[in-house]
C-alpha cells in the first residue's frame, strides 16, 4: 500500500505536519488571550487611577466630591477585618487540620468532614453572606459590624486554610515525630513542639493566600452590611465599618466619570496590597522549602 503511492503519503504527511504547526500557533495564541486581558486590565486600572492616587487620597474619608474622596476608611477597615478573619480562621482551620490528620481515625465521619469541606469550598460566597446575615447579624445580634463581617469571612476562607494546613502537616517528615515519641513525649507535646513548628511556613503561606482572597471579597460583605459611607474609623469590633472593595464598588456605580478614576485609584491600592501579600507568601515558601 505504502509503496504504491509514496508521493501521496509524503504529501499527506506534509499537510499533517503543517496542520500540527498551525494548531500549535493557535494554541499559543489562545494562551496569550488570558495574558493579554490581564495586561489590559492592569493598564486600564493604572491609567485611570494613577491621577487620583496620592497621599491625601490614602488618608481621606469618603466624600461627596471626587477630588476630596479617599480610601482611608476602607483601607483600615479591610486591615481590621482581616485581623478578625485571621484569628478565627487560623485557630479553627489549623485545629480542624490537626484533628483530621492526627487524631481522627479514618472512618465515615472523617470522610464526611472531608467531603463537607470540599463542598463548602464550592458554595458561592454570596450564600455565606446570607448565612452571616441570619446568624451573626440577626441571631447573635452583632448587627452590621466588623464582628459579623469578620466571622462571615472567616467561615468563607476556612476550607482554604484547612486544606493548606493539612498539606503542611502532611509534609512534616514522620522521622522527627518518631524522634519526639522516642523521647517519651506525648502525642500533643509532639504535635505542639515538633509537628506544628515544622509546618508553620506552609500554614503561613496558606493563610496569606486565603486572606488575600478574603481581602478582595465584596459580595458577602454587602449582605452582612458593610457600610459605604464611614467617616470615622471603627473603634471596636462592634463598630460599623467599610472595606476597600465596597468603596470601589460604590464608586464604580456612580454615573459621573470622575468617580471611575477614584475607583481606579482604590483598585491600585487594593492590588498593591494583594501583590504585597502574595510576595510575602512566595518569600516564605522559598525561604523554607530549601530547608526541609
Amino acid at each position: 500500500m505504502l509503496g504504491q503511492n509514496e508521493n501521496g503519503v509524503k504529501k499527506r504527511m506534509e499537510s499533517r505536519v503543517m496542520l500540527n504547526k498551525v494548531m500549535m500557533v493557535l494554541f499559543f495564541l489562545a494562551t496569550t488571550v488570558g495574558l493579554i486581558f490581564l495586561g489590559l486590565l492592569f493598564y486600564r486600572v493604572l491609567t485611570q487611577g494613577i491621577g487620583y492616587l496620592s497621599w491625601d487620597y490614602i488618608r481621606s474619608f469618603p466624600a461627596p466630591y471626587p477630588d476630596k474622596a479617599g480610601i482611608w476608611a476602607g483601607l483600615i477597615g479591610s486591615i481590621m477585618l482581616m485581623a478578625i478573619v485571621a484569628v478565627f480562621s487560623v485557630i479553627i482551620g489549623v485545629s480542624t487540620a490537626i484533628y483530621l490528620e492526627k487524631y481522627a481515625s479514618k472512618n465515615k465521619f472523617t470522610d464526611f468532614i472531608r467531603i463537607n469541606i470540599q463542598n463548602l469550598a464550592g458554595v458561592p460566597s454570596i450564600v455565606f453572606g446570607l448565612l452571616g446575615l441570619t446568624f451573626f447579624v440577626y441571631m447573635f445580634q452583632f448587627g452590621y459590624t466588623l464582628m459579623a463581617g469578620g466571622l462571615t469571612m472567616a467561615l468563607l476562607v476556612l476550607p482554604v486554610i484547612v486544606v493548606a494546613a493539612q498539606e503542611a502537616l502532611r509534609s512534616v517528615p514522620s522521622e522527627i515525630e518518631q524522634a519526639s515519641y522516642g523521647m517519651g513525649a506525648s502525642k500533643w507535646q509532639t504535635i505542639a513542639r515538633v509537628t506544628l513548628p515544622a509546618a508553620i511556613p506552609g500554614i503561613l503561606t496558606g493563610t496569606i493566600i486565603a486572606l488575600s482572597r478574603a481581602i478582595g471579597e465584596t459580595a458577602p460583605l454587602i449582605i452582612v452590611g458593610a457600610a459605604t459611607a464611614i467617616y470615622t474609623l471603627p473603634d471596636s469590633v462592634l463598630a460599623k465599618y467599610t472595606v476597600m472593595p465596597i468603596q470601589i464598588y460604590n464608586w464604580t456605580g456612580r454615573p459621573q466619570e470622575e468617580w471611575q478614576y477614584v475607583a481606579g485609584a482604590g483598585i491600585i491600592v487594593l492590588l498593591a496590597i494583594l501583590l504585597l501579600m502574595n510576595s510575602i507568601a512566595v518569600l516564605i515558601r522559598n525561604k523554607f522549602s530549601r530547608r526541609l
Binding site: T31, G34, L35, F37, L38, L40, L41, R44, V45, Q48, S212, R213, I215, G216, E217, T218, A219, P245, I248, Y249, T252, Q260, A263, G264, I267, L270, L271, L274, N278
Partner: peptide, 20 residues
C-alpha cells in the same frame, strides 16, 4: 501568570467590564 487572573478581586473585574 495565568493564575494571577484567578486572584484578581471580582469587583476589579466588574470595574474592568463596565469601564473598558
Amino acid at each position: 501568570v495565568l493564575e494571577v487572573l484567578a486572584g484578581i478581586p471580582t469587583v476589579v473585574y466588574g470595574y474592568f467590564a463596565l469601564t473598558f
